[in-house]
Simulated scan of single mutants.
Amino acid sequence: MTITLFVNDHCVSAIELQDDIPTVVDVEIPTTLLTESDPLYVSLFEAGGKKAGKSDFFVSMMSFSQDMLLPSQKWPLMTPGQFLRPGSDPDRQRLPDQMLCGGWHNPDGAGIWSLADAGRICFSVDPDIVRDGVLLLDLSRMGSDRQDDSITILANGGAKIAEAKMPGGTALQHRILVPLDAAANSRGEVDIRLIPNNPNWPSRSEAHPDYRRFGVQLLGLELRTFDGAGGKLLMLDGWHDWEPDGRWSAASSVTFAFRTRDVAQAPVIHAEVLPGSYGDVGVSLHYAVNDEASLEVQVIPGENQEILLPLIDFVEPGIHRVSLSGIEPVSPMSLGLNEDPRPLGIRLNSVSFGAAREIMDNGWEGNLSEMGPAEEVS
């Protein structure tokens, strides 16, 4: 039997069927046949134009790819700088339709929980920003009694593109950086899943009236682009706005991200601490890269110093997240320096990059490259 497929009264394909043998058919429909508004008419006829009767064949399933969807059905578009905070609380918002495309409970307070490991997020971006874009996911989970709890981000097809380690049963909020060039296809479509290991929920280990299977709690998602230091730097949390000489920290713990493409490189931050805030003694600056163990360096207040953050364990190019802590902000006004009432901690003046292995083997002096001046730190 030959069946012809019509879309909006145009014949687009002929399908050959054999008795009692199920047939799966993929049909590419020209976009010129798609209307700009609902409905989309799909018809199946016997060859020759006679409409097939119910006893002739049946269709068990029909699905549409993203390219075939009408504008009212496509995944929502996210733009750089957009920050979404799902939940039912007054300061939260409902996510756009079709963004949570399967595996989620209803919004609950300050977030929304996935159903075990089935949480899926779908949206689209401008393909031109994929190279420089990063998706920031604010996530939490219920900890288990094991020490290797984590959340893994999988792309469409199952490839792991990001992971957050949450040892010790912690349920604190965690921010994960997902590179768009690892998550998006050539059309700018992003389809990811959030997978917790060691799944746990209240009724799993004890008597509890809530039997929902919680996986990952989505607290927020934001789209950002690398736009500082020649497209290598992304300022994240805890910073004041840009100033001509750099950016001051506004909190005792701040984060930024950098990326390398060609060879593994180590960042050298050019920074200074507010004069007078710690007298003439050095202050300990703690830093951690990609949530690994924290290290410590000494910083002298009032001096613009070049501080090496070694990355000897990383041999591949990629995105690295850096956290700085240990310097409590204080206002220049309280120190009698000027009339600025803002709490200021450490000022990041610029960032240089050098080959990591050369820096570790030979010392970093003379090996710096591609220095980002202060006005590029944003």
Rank of each mutant, 00 (worst) to 15 (best):
N185L: 11
S253L: 12
D19S: 14
A182S: 15
P267M: 03
Q98E: 12
D97I: 10
G133C: 10
E206R: 14
L218D: 06
F64M: 14
E28G: 03
R342D: 02
A171R: 08
I121S: 09
L77I: 11
G158W: 12
S37G: 08
V351N: 04
V315A: 02
N349K: 10
H10F: 07
H240D: 05
E292H: 11
I300D: 07
P209D: 07
R193K: 12
G345M: 05
G366F: 05
M360Q: 05
V42D: 08
S369P: 00
D56K: 14
N304D: 10
D117G: 05
G354E: 00
V24G: 03
T35M: 07
H270W: 10
P127F: 10
R131N: 08
S124L: 06
S277Y: 08
L177K: 03
D126L: 01
P80T: 11
K51V: 15
W104D: 04
K54D: 13
G238C: 08
P329F: 04
G354H: 00
G81P: 11
L5G: 00
T255C: 12
G109W: 06
L221V: 07
M78I: 13
A118W: 12
H286Q: 14
S378H: 02
Q147V: 01
T31K: 13
I192K: 01
L136E: 15
L84K: 06
D132L: 01
F6A: 05
A159T: 10
R347I: 00
V134E: 04
P30W: 07
D241L: 10
S378G: 00
P310C: 01
Q73C: 09
G246N: 06
V377T: 08
E296K: 13
I21D: 06
N362M: 04
T2G: 00
